[in-house]
Amino acid sequence: MTDRTRILLLLGPALVLVGGMVLSALGLALLRSLHLFPVVAPDLSAYATVLGSPGFLASLALSVWIATVSTALAAALALALALLLRRGFPGRGMVAVLVQLNLTVPHVVGAIGLLYLVSQSGAFARLAHAAGLIARPGEFPALTHDPYAIGIILTYIWKEVPFITLILLAKLQTLGEGHEQVARSLGATRWQAFRHVLLPQLAPALAAASALVFAFAFGAYEIPLILGAHAPEALPVAAWRAFTDVDLTRRPQAFAISVLVAGLGIALLLLYARLTLPQRGRHAG
């Protein structure tokens, strides 16, 4: 058997199954958004309606806001946490275990837990009441179903900080402390060693993890469904609502939204590929 055949045989099932499903799904969504399947007459009206509606633009803006803020804060906090966990302190093992355990908690659980924790009548509001800070729930800051999507962002931070931290810890483990120690011995301050030696080495892993987080926070449905305000809706919620609307004419619009999101996702994918995939060579991780 030649290498070529061997590679084909090894890759075949994965390509046919997942490649097939992904390309068919994208293709079908594109056809449906253009009124091409079932064949009516190709037109761009769904895109015109979607792009021309203030609701879509508000939803897009909200989802970009949620994904950007969640990713930025989660990345910064995760960097700090990873550096913290690299050092020794009492209880470090415990924190490390909790970080790993968080990874196993589904997002929907986190969203509902956070709702019961930070809503205006939630556990924190009750503590504030007990401390004499507020009298009525309405006096507690609105952190859920609020215009800034704070509850949604908090959920993502809660879930994604451990995720990014674990990636960074793995990277730190492979890097070791050698380079930093050399820099320190050459007179660099602790900050300089971090800024000019460690951070550049961590950057690709951090950026790749952030891209995954951004894509997820942009495209997830159940978290904004549970914690979002009535308007504007996050893009996935708006798309699903258009898709399940009993008015069939809204379906091409739903597919149009999904194609637009896919476009953004493909841009993200190319960025991710630049950051993580080697141009050539055997290494694939």
Partner: peptide, 29 residues
């Protein structure tokens, strides 16, 4: 091998594409 990057991209795609981009098309399929 030739085309390895493309195949990697394709196999990676579902992890990076936001969920809503694939769900509606998959439902149709």
């Amino acid at each position: 091998f030739r085309g390895k990057r493309l195949i990697l991209l394709l196999l990676l795609a579902p992890a990076i594409l936001p969920g809503i981009a694939l769900v509606l098309g998959l439902h149709d399929l």
